[in-house]
């Protein structure tokens, strides 16, 4: 049973573990994952040693395991499960119980077969109204932003997610057609994009770099193609990029 695992480890040491983490809450999550895996692997091994011992033991023992021992063991496991639940719970509460900071920047993530779109609310910091009937990717309006709505004028729609390092972002997830799964392994972040609902997640990218964005919920024949890139850049670069996009948009008009 261990041979393929060892083989795998040797062959592909790097990718076989979680990808490098670039988020603020990531290290805590990874530490949690690590301890869980260690503890549970140890238990699994212990269990199998016990099994092997019982199988190899030819001469039957007269005494059986006292009930007391069983209960103690069980109590031990209860303790472990409780500990796991608690530690995990703290992290969960940290990342999900409260909304973003006031200073967080806002980006809207929209999934559509089989594309991710990212909408920045622009200088006015409010998203323009969208209408399904206006959706027309060919005409450069993939989200159906209503041109008659002033708030929408300065919205920037991008197919790459560019974020400044070190600043918290508040994502609002939507989907135009079917369920998609918004997954950034490098940010230890996943939340489904569900049509008819708007879901919110917030996180803080720390390390500058490029991270794949995947779709983690089967959404049709292009499910595996439905990917994008997250580019975490320095605040200065980000300012430059968004300004550039604004100018480009104005040029169109």
């Amino acid at each position: 049973m261990l041979i393929p695992a060892a083989y795998a480890l040797l062959k592909i040491g790097r990718v076989v573990w979680m990808p490098v983490d670039g988020s603020l809450h990531g290290p805590a999550a990874d530490r949690l994952m690590w301890w869980n895996l260690v503890a549970l692997c140890a238990i699994a091994v212990a269990g199998h040693l016990w099994l092997a011992f019982a199988m190899l033991r030819r001469k039957p023992a007269k005494r059986s395991v006292p009930a007391m021992a069983r209960w103690v063991l069980l109590a031990g496991f209860c303790g472990m499960y409780a500990w796991m639940a608690l530690t995990a719970q703290n992290l969960w509460a940290e990342t999900r119980y409260e909304g973003p900071l006031q200073t967080a920047m806002h980006v809207e993530v929209v999934g559509v077969q089989f594309q991710w779109y990212f909408r920045y609310p622009g200088p006015d910091a409010t998203y323009g109204v969208t209408r399904p009937r206006l959706v027309n990717a060919a005409a450069g309006n993939p989200l159906g932003i209503d041109p008659r709505d002033a708030n929408g004028r300065d919205d920037v729609v991008s197919s790459v997610l560019v974020l400044p390092a070190g600043r918290e972002v508040e994502l609002r997830l939507r989907s135009l057609d079917v369920m998609h799964g918004f997954f950034i392994p490098g940010m230890r972040l996943k939340e489904d994009a569900i049509p008819g609902m708007t879901l919110h997640v917030h996180f803080t990218p720390e390390k500058v770099g490029t991270y794949p964005i995947l779709c983690s919920q089967v959404c049709g024949l292009g499910h595996d193609r439905m990917q994008a890139r997250l580019m975490v850049v320095s605040p200065a670069d980000y300012a430059a990029w968004i300004a550039g996009r604004e100018r480009a948009r104005e040029a169109e008009e």
Partner: peptide, 18 residues
């Protein structure tokens, strides 16, 4: 034993549907 790992939301956020 991998069940309790998946049972922790903060880990499942990464592992879900992998």
């Amino acid at each position: 034993l991998t069940g309790p790992i998946l049972a922790q939301p903060s880990l499942d956020v990464y592992l879900h549907n992998t």
